[in-house]
Amino acid sequence: CHSECLGNCSQPDDPTKCVACRNFYLDGRCVETCPPPYYHFQDWRCVNFSFCQDLHHKCKNSRRQGCHQYVIHNNKCIPECPSGYTMNSSNLLCTPCLGPCPKVCHLLEGEKTIDSVTSAQELRGCTVINGSLIINIRGGNNLAAELEANLGLIEEISGYLKIRRSYALVSLSFFRKLRLIRGETLEIGNYSFYALDNQNLRQLWDWSKHNLTITQGKLFFHYNPKLCLSEIHKMEEVSGTKGRQERNDIALKTNGDQASCENELLKFSYIRTSFDKILLRWEPYWPPDFRDLLGFMLFYKEAPYQNVTEFDGQDACGSNSWTVVDIDPPLRSNDPKSQNHPGWLMRGLKPWTQYAIFVKTLVTFSDERRTYGAKSDIIYVQTDATNPSVPLDPISVSNSSSQIILKWKPPSDPNGNITHYLVFWERQAEDSELFELDYCLKGLKLPSRTWSPPFESEDSQKHNQSEYEDSAGECCSCPKTDSQILKELEESSFRKTFEDYLHNVVFVPRKT
């Protein structure tokens, strides 16, 4: 048989008469490798580009789960590009990614509803959504962080984005990388972005840091009482949809009607710091009717980097990364020049730590249904340095008659930039024990000054392991946590139920 035959053949030295091919099969003959313009397919066939392209389009058009959109890589027609490569849609070739590779997620039936953290986790790592997304989240724990972890990498949506009755959302900033909504599939009414009845939605994105392009379709905003109209108009300008909307697409009466839409800028007039305090004062603000001013709200939190936005980490279910302080308005003076500047002394802060701070007014709604208010920009203030805590785990070892090696770990709280350490030492008198000992005694162990690591005695271990207080009263049991108490109650309830079950099964009433 021919060298490319495997198993047997019907005619000697003829690659077209093989029972099976050793390498690849091409047009009725066995070959060692697939010549151009053919590609290896499933490690035994040679196919042309049209064959591989037909497989790709067949799966793409069917949208069946589990099928493969075949691509070409290293002269092979394979189910998908290997790690580190992405497909070129024009020629199906796998090309190296520039940075992290995109991950295209194809949605069944063309859309997916995100109504819980669990459903959001199914899209973790996706960068391109081939379909439409509907966000409908009523509640949950730590929602802002969970949504950002699972949806934060999405850069492109081919269909539309719909935010509907998501009472738990305060902001859409968890879509931190969303840059493009194509609108290839539109919501009824030709809408590519749809926001309806979101009672706590206050911000779409921080438009000073976020760009969003909507290729096709219109915007729809109705019944978002805490979303200011200025935020919607800003989205029109940034996304390129200005002029597409009709009169009733953006409701003037049901958007922002319960919001404090600040239209003035508060400026800080005085800032002073110490290692654990920050004193702030800002310019006074009074609405047209000074009785509408209820006070100020001061927001602050630790910020290692200057990239904080107002609604980071917030949701309507209680999660809030900001510390909020309510401040009463100052006494009002008739003389504008003698107006008191409101302020606040922030206490209990960490030394040498940068804080993000902003302040906003708290006002009631005027009778004319106009909203007044003022808010400052987010500023960054760093507390002063102070003395560091003591170095940890000092170790001293003498390696000769004239040297001592000293080692330690950095302090747990540096409280500033540590530039150097101060080492103090003092000579001590020799131990009298060394002169009084009889060095001729056998088995004498000389006193040693070398360091030995501390260890816990058996008594201390027994005390720590004991669940009861000892007789001397030195140790006591740790208080039980809520989960331990709940577990004990469940076990007790189970024992009672099981005992009742045994009584009912074992003891049967005697027939009379």
Rank of each mutant, 00 (worst) to 15 (best):
T127Y: 12
H341Q: 13
S319I: 15
G140I: 11
Y305E: 04
H222L: 08
F358V: 11
F193L: 10
N142V: 10
P411V: 08
G110E: 05
G373A: 02
V359E: 00
L345H: 05
D367Y: 13
D257R: 05
A168L: 00
K226W: 12
G240R: 07
Y380F: 13
K253I: 10
G140S: 11
A385S: 05
A149M: 07
K301L: 09
P410H: 11
R369S: 08
L161E: 00
A303W: 05
L298H: 00
Q258R: 06
I405T: 03
I154S: 01
L279I: 08
G183Y: 02
T213W: 05
L392S: 13
K177G: 07
K112T: 04
G373S: 03
N320C: 12
Y285P: 02
Q245P: 12
F220S: 13
K301M: 14
S158N: 06
Q245R: 09
T213C: 14
I404C: 04
S171R: 07
A168G: 03
L294I: 08
G343D: 01
K267H: 04
K360L: 06
S132G: 09
Y270T: 00
R179I: 12
S398V: 03
R369N: 13
V397H: 11
Y300G: 01
T254Q: 15
K162E: 04
L201D: 00
G189P: 13
E187W: 15
T213Y: 07
I405M: 01
V390N: 08
L227I: 14
S269C: 08
T215M: 08
T118F: 11
A120N: 02
Q354W: 12
F268L: 02
R179W: 09
V128N: 01
S158V: 08
E246I: 04
W344Y: 02
K209D: 01
A120W: 04
R347M: 05
G295H: 13
S396M: 04
L252S: 13
D206T: 05
P288Y: 00
W207A: 06
V359G: 01
D289P: 02
Q403K: 15
L153P: 09
W408P: 01
E262G: 05
L186Q: 07
I114M: 07
N141G: 14
P330K: 03
A195Y: 00
F290Y: 10
L349E: 00
A374S: 05
A356K: 02
K409A: 13
E184M: 02
D326L: 09
P394D: 05
R176N: 07
E231R: 08
P410S: 15
S158A: 13
R291I: 13
T241H: 09
Q382W: 10
Y167P: 15
L172E: 00
G343F: 03
E236C: 13
L265K: 12
E262F: 10
E310Y: 05
G256T: 01
A144Q: 08
T213E: 15
L279P: 00
Q306K: 09
E302L: 10
V324G: 04
P287E: 08
K301R: 12
W352G: 02
K350Q: 15
N255T: 07
I214V: 14
N224W: 01
R347D: 12
W352I: 15
H106W: 09
G159T: 01
N130E: 10
V104S: 13
P351N: 03
S158K: 12
G243K: 07
Q121W: 02
L107F: 09
K350N: 03
D312Y: 05
I188K: 07
I250S: 12
L201Q: 02
E148P: 09
I157E: 00
I378T: 11
Q216P: 03
I378C: 10
H106C: 02
V397G: 14
G313N: 14
T213H: 15
W344L: 09
F220G: 15
I154A: 07
L172S: 03
Y380G: 02
S274V: 03
D393F: 14
K234W: 08
N387G: 13
F299A: 15
Y160C: 15
G373Y: 03
D377Q: 06
Y300L: 10
E246D: 13
A251K: 06
A144G: 11
Q121Y: 02
A195I: 13
N334I: 04
K103Q: 14
D115A: 03
L227H: 01
S319G: 12
L279R: 12
K301Y: 05
I357T: 13
L406S: 03
P329S: 05
T364D: 15
C261V: 10
Q258L: 12
L345V: 11
T323K: 12
C261W: 05
P342E: 06
F365Q: 07
E146G: 15
C126T: 01
S319K: 04
W286C: 15
K162I: 03
K337N: 10
V363T: 08
L331F: 06
L294K: 10
A120D: 02
P225R: 02
Q354H: 06
D257K: 14
G152W: 10
S119T: 07
L204F: 11
L133Y: 01
V359P: 00
Y380R: 07
V363L: 11
L298T: 02
F299D: 00
L345D: 14
N320F: 11
N334L: 04
P394H: 03
R347P: 13
F268G: 00
D115P: 03
L161P: 01
E231H: 12
L266T: 04
K253G: 08
Y194Q: 06
L186E: 07
S208F: 14
L279D: 00
L153S: 10
K112P: 01
R291C: 15
I395K: 10
G295Y: 02
I114S: 01
M346W: 02
F193T: 02
D292Q: 14
A251N: 15
F221T: 05
N263R: 13
T118H: 14
T213D: 13
Y194F: 11
F220L: 08
G152H: 09
L266C: 03
E155I: 15
S158H: 07
T353L: 07
D328E: 15
R281Y: 00
W322I: 02
F193V: 10
P351R: 06
G243A: 05
W408K: 00
P410V: 02
S366L: 01
W408S: 00
Q216H: 11
V128E: 01
P288S: 11
G217P: 01
L172A: 06
N255M: 08
Y191L: 05
L266Y: 01
N334P: 06
I114A: 02
V104C: 03
A316I: 01
E231T: 12
G313A: 08
P288H: 11
F175Q: 00
E368Y: 10
Q216R: 08
E184I: 11
N334V: 03
S333T: 07
K234S: 09
Y305I: 02
S333H: 04
S260Y: 02
P391D: 02
N136T: 04
P351V: 08
D257S: 03
E246F: 10
W344Q: 12
P342C: 05
N255Q: 10
S132T: 12
L298M: 14
T361Y: 13
T113H: 12
L151R: 00
G343A: 09
Y355M: 02
G256P: 05
D367S: 10
Q382A: 15
F299I: 08
S173V: 09
C317P: 09
K337T: 14
E302T: 07
S333C: 08
L280R: 00
K277F: 05
D206K: 15
R347G: 02
G313F: 03
